[in-house]
Measured scan of single mutants.
Amino acid sequence: EPELVFKVRVRTKDGRELEIEVSAEDLEKLLEALPDIEEVEIEEVEP
């Protein structure tokens, strides 16, 4: 069974934007590691 992958769009407080694809596990780590995120948009990517 393929692992869930999420497309994550992040905007930081200083206005930088970042778009990455991460696994569910990595997404959890990412959110814990970035306390200064202003906006996060997450969508599931079809395998």
Score class of each variant (00 low, 15 high):
37 I>K: 04
21 E>M: 15
47 P>E: 07
7 K>C: 08
18 L>S: 03
10 V>S: 00
31 L>G: 01
5 V>R: 15
2 P>E: 05
25 E>A: 13
11 R>P: 00
5 V>D: 09
15 G>V: 00
31 L>C: 10
28 E>Y: 13
39 E>K: 10
6 F>V: 15
1 E>G: 13
27 L>K: 01
28 E>L: 13
43 E>W: 15
17 E>M: 14
22 V>L: 09
32 E>S: 11
6 F>I: 15
34 L>G: 03
36 D>Q: 05
20 I>S: 02
12 T>W: 14
16 R>Q: 09
36 D>P: 04
42 I>N: 02
26 D>L: 08
36 D>W: 07
47 P>N: 10
46 E>P: 11
11 R>E: 01
28 E>T: 09
35 P>H: 12
7 K>A: 03
24 A>G: 06
8 V>R: 00
10 V>M: 05
46 E>C: 11
33 A>K: 06
3 E>V: 06
2 P>L: 08
15 G>Q: 02
10 V>R: 00
10 V>A: 03
6 F>T: 14
5 V>S: 12
37 I>P: 04
35 P>L: 14
7 K>P: 14
19 E>Q: 09
23 S>V: 05
21 E>N: 10
25 E>I: 12
20 I>V: 07
29 K>H: 05
10 V>P: 00
39 E>N: 09
29 K>F: 07
41 E>M: 12
5 V>W: 07
28 E>K: 13
20 I>N: 00
5 V>G: 09
23 S>Y: 08
33 A>H: 08
40 V>W: 13
33 A>N: 10
39 E>Q: 10
20 I>P: 00
16 R>T: 08
31 L>D: 01
32 E>Y: 07
35 P>D: 14
24 A>I: 08
38 E>F: 13
17 E>G: 03
4 L>A: 04
17 E>H: 11
47 P>Q: 09
36 D>A: 04
44 E>Q: 11
24 A>T: 04
1 E>T: 11
1 E>I: 11
25 E>N: 11
47 P>W: 04
6 F>Q: 07
46 E>M: 12
20 I>D: 00
45 V>D: 04
39 E>Y: 15
44 E>Y: 11
33 A>P: 01
43 E>H: 12
42 I>Q: 03
44 E>H: 09
43 E>L: 15
3 E>C: 14
26 D>E: 11
35 P>V: 14
41 E>C: 13
16 R>I: 09
5 V>K: 14
16 R>V: 10
46 E>Y: 15
25 E>K: 13
44 E>G: 09
15 G>C: 03
19 E>G: 02
41 E>H: 12
33 A>I: 09
12 T>M: 14
3 E>K: 13
6 F>A: 07
32 E>I: 08
14 D>C: 05
31 L>H: 02
23 S>E: 02
28 E>G: 10
32 E>T: 10
4 L>E: 04
1 E>V: 11
30 L>F: 12
13 K>E: 03
30 L>Q: 01
9 R>V: 06
33 A>Q: 08
28 E>V: 12
10 V>K: 00
29 K>Y: 05
44 E>R: 13
6 F>L: 15
21 E>D: 05
11 R>N: 01
36 D>M: 05
46 E>I: 13
5 V>A: 08
45 V>P: 06
11 R>C: 06
13 K>A: 08
14 D>W: 03
24 A>K: 10
30 L>D: 00
13 K>V: 06
16 R>S: 06
21 E>Q: 10
9 R>S: 03
38 E>C: 10
28 E>Q: 13
41 E>S: 12
21 E>L: 15
37 I>W: 13
30 L>N: 00
17 E>K: 09
45 V>K: 08
40 V>T: 03
20 I>H: 02
34 L>V: 05
1 E>M: 11
26 D>C: 13
46 E>F: 13
13 K>F: 02
40 V>L: 11
37 I>S: 06
34 L>A: 03
26 D>Q: 12
23 S>D: 04
13 K>Y: 01
7 K>E: 05
40 V>Q: 02
8 V>A: 02
3 E>F: 04
6 F>Y: 09
10 V>L: 10
1 E>L: 12
34 L>P: 01
5 V>P: 02
39 E>R: 11
15 G>A: 01
33 A>M: 14
7 K>H: 12
25 E>F: 09
10 V>D: 00
1 E>K: 14
24 A>L: 11
13 K>M: 05
46 E>N: 12
40 V>N: 02
30 L>E: 01
11 R>K: 09
20 I>T: 03
11 R>D: 00
40 V>G: 02
27 L>W: 05
18 L>Y: 15
26 D>V: 05
22 V>E: 00
14 D>V: 01
27 L>H: 00
15 G>E: 00
8 V>T: 01
34 L>E: 03
3 E>N: 07
29 K>S: 05
40 V>C: 15
47 P>I: 12
9 R>I: 09
28 E>H: 12
44 E>P: 12
42 I>G: 02
24 A>H: 06
15 G>L: 01
35 P>T: 14
28 E>I: 12
9 R>F: 00
